[in-house]
Design a protein around this nucleic acid. Sequence first.
DNA 1: CGTGCGCTTGATAGAAATCAATGTCAGTGG
DNA 2: CCACTGACATTGATTTCTATCAAGCGCACG
Lengths: 256, 256
Amino acid sequence: MNAPLRMPLGPAAPGLRADMKGQCSDCNTGGLCLATGLDSVSKMRFDRLVGQHRRIAGGDMLYRTGQPLHSLYTVRCGFFKTRRRGPAGDQITSFPMTGELLGLEAVGTGIHQSDAVALEDSIVCELPFAALELLFEDIPGLHRRFYRMMSYEINRQQHLMILLGNMRAEQRMATFLIDMGAAYASRGYSPVRFQLRMSREDIGSYLGLTIESISRLLARFTKLGLITVNKRAIVLNDPQRIAEMASGFSPCSPMV
Amino acid sequence: MNAPLRMPLGPAAPGLRADMKGQCSDCNTGGLCLATGLDSVSKMRFDRLVGQHRRIAGGDMLYRTGQPLHSLYTVRCGFFKTRRRGPAGDQITSFPMTGELLGLEAVGTGIHQSDAVALEDSIVCELPFAALELLFEDIPGLHRRFYRMMSYEINRQQHLMILLGNMRAEQRMATFLIDMGAAYASRGYSPVRFQLRMSREDIGSYLGLTIESISRLLARFTKLGLITVNKRAIVLNDPQRIAEMASGFSPCSPMV
DNA sequence: CGTGCGCTTGATAGAAATCAATGTCAGTGG
DNA sequence: CCACTGACATTGATTTCTATCAAGCGCACG
């Protein structure tokens, strides 16, 4: 069952490339970046805004709770987790990947309300927020795009609230797997074969479960033939049934 | 223990006043509304935007999942719940009260992703969204204020995610009571004596618990002398200890 | 070769859900 | 006026899902 898998595992960890001042024009984040859809003149201006392409080593923090907001960041390549600290423990609130915008929680107060941690060596585009706000005045459609992204974020979080508030462990895991697949799919990778970038503990914190439960759930899904797991490499063998579990069909047996 | 309480219970249900085209200038929503802080000229323009003050009867829906976004709404007086429908059941995502902005989840897609239900007879200011977007171009600071409110909403939801993902039932209830008190306090009412507007079932859906658990928790808090409950009237007798429970101190005994 | 971290697996405990009555109260109609 | 109804709420008994406690595995690394 745990025979060695040979599979394409989604985007490779970035080789920490040297072009630290690349342009948006040669960026492959697809339709996800804030700058997408701008005309070429606006895109040049936006290019000038992007202060730097910062490299973040895996395990390092991009920003942390309590820091003043200097910049928002778009993930150019790599993988992050955002973590909100609470009285009863931490909650992972998202696993941002290529193209996603980081730091929106700080826009209201000017102070970061969570940590952003790189899960692997990553590169981000730094968007100095003060300059971005000025650019809103100049580039038509940019601030519309901005608040739409915030609305998407609100929806993403509500999706997670339903998961945390209403779903059984099995359904949470099924939802997580399907969502991860979809995230890879929207970036041109396989929705059924991918490499998890986060630890079991991170998954647990994200899904409101313990690490032991995560382990048992993956074991059970494997036993049912739904998935194949090798360390952090995942294959969804029966994505349809997993999706049904996520949707609340398929009786959702207990956790043994 | 259940002696009849005589107390001021927060804002009275509105008398469904006749002034359906009141100005922002005579609005008492305090510093919470989108129009707050505008200069008088801008405020007049904003006034003209506000299409109507719609009355919503208790139990009626302001909008529902799947409807196209026509307008955002500010609660002028009254009380709402927003409900997100999910495969495993519904989740109450907020209890908007005076001054709060409704409909932000629809900005990204143009389609409402949740229901807004009035918990009592209420009045809202209708902000036609297309017109609002045009106004962003004209009124300096308005769109900044707008996306800041979205960021606050993101933070509010993250707070709730921590509650749903990490807290025990007792801690959730304590947090809920403190949060409700704070919401009333920020509107000039007592933070320790208030009238809940929502059913036990709504509270349960909001906190990710069953209605029975809510009932037992309130009974237990009462037995401990922390609160006094009479139907939906609540008095926090020991707000400090309740706050400690919310913060994770105070050992959080089981639910019996 | 030990040491530590991430992960798995098993046994047990416990918090909250579920199932099942019962109670309260407002509204309605006989 | 009182019985009936239905929504909302409380309370008790029991079940069950998941956490917790505990042990061990496998692999990378010093």
